[in-house]
Simulated assay, not measured.
Amino acid sequence: MQTASGAKLNAGRILLLLLFLGAGWYFWDTAALLPLKLLVVMMHESGHAIATLLVGGSVEHITLRLDQSGACLSSLPPGIFRKIFVFSGGYLGSAVVGAGLLLATFRFRLRRWVLGATCVWLGVMGILYARDPFTLAFCVGTSVVLGLAARFLPQGAVDVLNLFLAAFTALYALFDLRDDLWDSSIRSLSDAALLAQHTWVPAIAWAALWTLLGVLLLGWAAYISMHARPASPFSSMSMPSRRF
């Protein structure tokens, strides 16, 4: 199978993506995945923070906890559309990050830049908005680890790490949306419930909308990223050498 641009399906990428998704699912409740879960929670809260800044609000602080909960305390200008945008920024922000990791690594071949940007993002968010020792230590420590990976890992290992991060981010984002959609006890405390209080639209409707958008976005990014771009016809051409 190939796209209109001639990109062909890359079986190796698909197998690796499925392996990572399966491993994440199987080992979901193990302590080994806790740092990755906290990383995605930070993506979620950062989505709220960035959405807040985009609508002209201010962010007071971001908090992470070991139980995988998080909070972004911010002040918003009045307006229902601003609230919808900011409350939607958490779940959809995680999906956007997962899609961005896939596209940046495999479609645009940025590779080390992806890890470098993630390193900078964590460091900046931690320094600017963390107000408790745990959140600050997690952001700075993870930033250092990803920075070292971007600097010293071989290119193939960077690709594998980026694909793993993208797969896990996508899985966590979809699990979050699933819980909001099907578990009423969780949904009653979620962003969807908070937004329902401001819009009179039921929380399950917001959860369903976010799930649909998240699945479509991640599915599209995976489809594009799992296709290898065809080599340029100019890549095999070499310029004749000259001697002066």
Rank of each mutant, 00 (worst) to 15 (best):
L195Y: 07
H198D: 11
V201E: 07
I204T: 15
I204G: 14
D191T: 12
Q197K: 14
V201S: 04
L212Q: 10
A222P: 02
M226R: 14
D191S: 05
A222T: 09
L217Y: 00
I224T: 15
L194V: 15
H198M: 13
W220T: 12
A207L: 05
M226A: 09
L212R: 06
L209Q: 14
L217K: 01
L212C: 13
L218P: 00
A207S: 03
L216I: 05
G219I: 00
L195P: 06
P202A: 06
S190T: 07
A208R: 12
H198L: 02
L194M: 15
A221W: 02
D191G: 09
A193I: 09
T211F: 03
V215D: 01
T211I: 10
L218K: 08
A192Q: 04
A203L: 14
A221R: 01
Q197S: 04
A192C: 11
L218F: 02
P202S: 09
W206I: 04
W200D: 15
D191E: 07
S225Y: 00
A205V: 13
P202D: 03
W220H: 13
L212G: 08
A193P: 03
W200V: 14
I204D: 13
S190E: 02
W206V: 04
H198A: 12
L217E: 02
S225P: 06
T211K: 01
S190L: 05
A203M: 13
G214M: 01
A207F: 07
T199I: 04
L209E: 12
M226K: 04
L217G: 05
L218T: 00
W220E: 02
L213G: 04
A193E: 02
A193Q: 09
A221Y: 01
A196W: 10
A193R: 03
A205M: 12
A193L: 04
L216K: 05
D191A: 03
W220N: 11
A207M: 06
Y223G: 11
L213Y: 05
I204E: 14
A208M: 09
S190P: 07
L194R: 13
L195S: 08
H198S: 08
L216N: 01
I224A: 10
T211S: 11
S190C: 02
M226Q: 11
G219M: 01
W210Q: 02
V215E: 00
A207Q: 03
V215T: 07
W200F: 15
A205R: 15
S225H: 05
H198G: 04
A205T: 15
A196S: 13
A193T: 11
W206D: 03
G219D: 03
A192G: 06
W210V: 05
L213I: 10
A205Y: 07
A208H: 05
W210R: 02
L213A: 10
V201D: 06
L212H: 07
Y223C: 15
H198E: 12
D191C: 03
A196L: 12
T211Y: 01
W220V: 15
Q197V: 12
W220G: 04
L195F: 08
A208W: 03
A205Q: 13
V215W: 06
A203T: 02
A203G: 11
A196K: 09
V215A: 02
W200S: 14
A222Q: 09
A203C: 08
V201F: 06
G219R: 00
I204C: 15
L216Q: 12
L213S: 05
G214C: 09
W200G: 14
V215S: 03
W206S: 02
L218E: 01
V201W: 08
A196C: 09
L217S: 00
